[in-house]
Amino acid sequence: MALSTRHLILAARAAALAAWPLASWRTRWSVEMAHNFCWLYPTLRPNCAWHGPVVTRFETGRREVWLTIDDGPDPRDTPGMLDVLAKHGAKATFFVIGRQVDSQRALVRRILREGHSLGNHTYNHPAGWWWAAPRPLVRREVAWGGKAIETATGAKPRWFRSPVGMNNASVHPAAESERQRVIGWSASGKDGCPAAPTVVIQRIMASVKPGAIIVLHEGGSSRYRVSTLERLLERLQGEGYTCVLPEPESLR
């Protein structure tokens, strides 16, 4: 469905360009507005699949969720998060930033050693302008982020997540060229900006159900990353949920 939508958008753009010389100014204005909407909406709306498929859940018959943690590795937060995950017997995927992988390789290897997995979160995490990044720059960010992980661990990542979940038209071709699937989420605490753990957990639990993909963050100015994770795991376990690493074929 996502690929069909993308093809329809491209076909509509081509038809509009072909008719442009014959159109009135009102028609041209309408076409321009429609074109801008079709380009901006799927780019600025996290997890939108207009430009290509975005995984936002996985199939399971049990009370299982996929916990993902963005923006590491962070020398302040990652060790504490790993300790909390081990304490609760939970598994997570860390979507890591390439330049931080280069400077924190021991932490990256510890993540894998303790049974977790890694995903590519670009090399520089250019969140402020990623939505408008041109194709060569997107390809470089995806490729360099994956290469940093491969250099540190000896294995290529299978998953990619855009900064802030914004996927412009260049993201899917770049991820596909690196054989990485684009991963979104279905339950977010919106903790990219500092927030109290209780608020973050309430936001997440409102969207949790079997097969949900949860996103948390590490690093930044918040002092509550580790405590938020611990309280979230306690809440999930209290409601019978287990944090697992899903099989690739179960992703939807």
Score class of each variant (00 low, 15 high):
Ser4His: 12
Thr5Glu: 09
Leu10Met: 02
Ala12Ile: 05
Ala19Leu: 15
Ala23Trp: 13
Thr27Lys: 09
Trp29Ser: 03
Cys38Arg: 05
Pro42Thr: 05
Gly52Ile: 08
Glu59His: 10
Thr60Trp: 14
Glu64Met: 05
Trp66Asp: 07
Asp70Phe: 01
Asp71Ala: 07
Asp71Thr: 06
Gly72Pro: 12
Thr78Asp: 03
Thr78Cys: 01
Leu85Glu: 07
Ala86Phe: 07
His88Gly: 02
His88Tyr: 15
Lys91Gln: 15
Ala92Val: 09
Phe94Asn: 00
Phe95Leu: 08
Val96Thr: 06
Gln100Val: 00
Val101Ile: 02
Arg109Asp: 02
Gly115Thr: 00
His116Asn: 14
Ser117Gly: 13
Ser117Leu: 05
Leu118Ser: 11
Asn120Leu: 13
Asn120Phe: 15
Ala132Glu: 06
Pro134Ser: 04
Pro136Asn: 08
Ala143Cys: 06
Ala148Val: 00
Ile149Met: 03
Ala155Cys: 08
Arg158Tyr: 01
Arg158Phe: 06
Ser162Ala: 15
Pro163Asn: 08
Asn168Tyr: 07
Ala169Met: 10
Ser177Phe: 09
Arg181His: 04
Cys193Met: 10
Ala195Trp: 08
Ala195Ser: 14
Thr198Val: 03
Ile201His: 06
Met205Gln: 05
Ser207Pro: 03
Gly211Leu: 03
Val215Ser: 12
Leu216Lys: 03
Gly219Lys: 11
Gly220Ile: 05
Val226Ala: 10
Thr228Arg: 11
Thr228Cys: 10
Glu234Trp: 14
Glu239Ile: 00
Gly240His: 11
Thr242Met: 02
Val244Leu: 10
Pro248Cys: 11
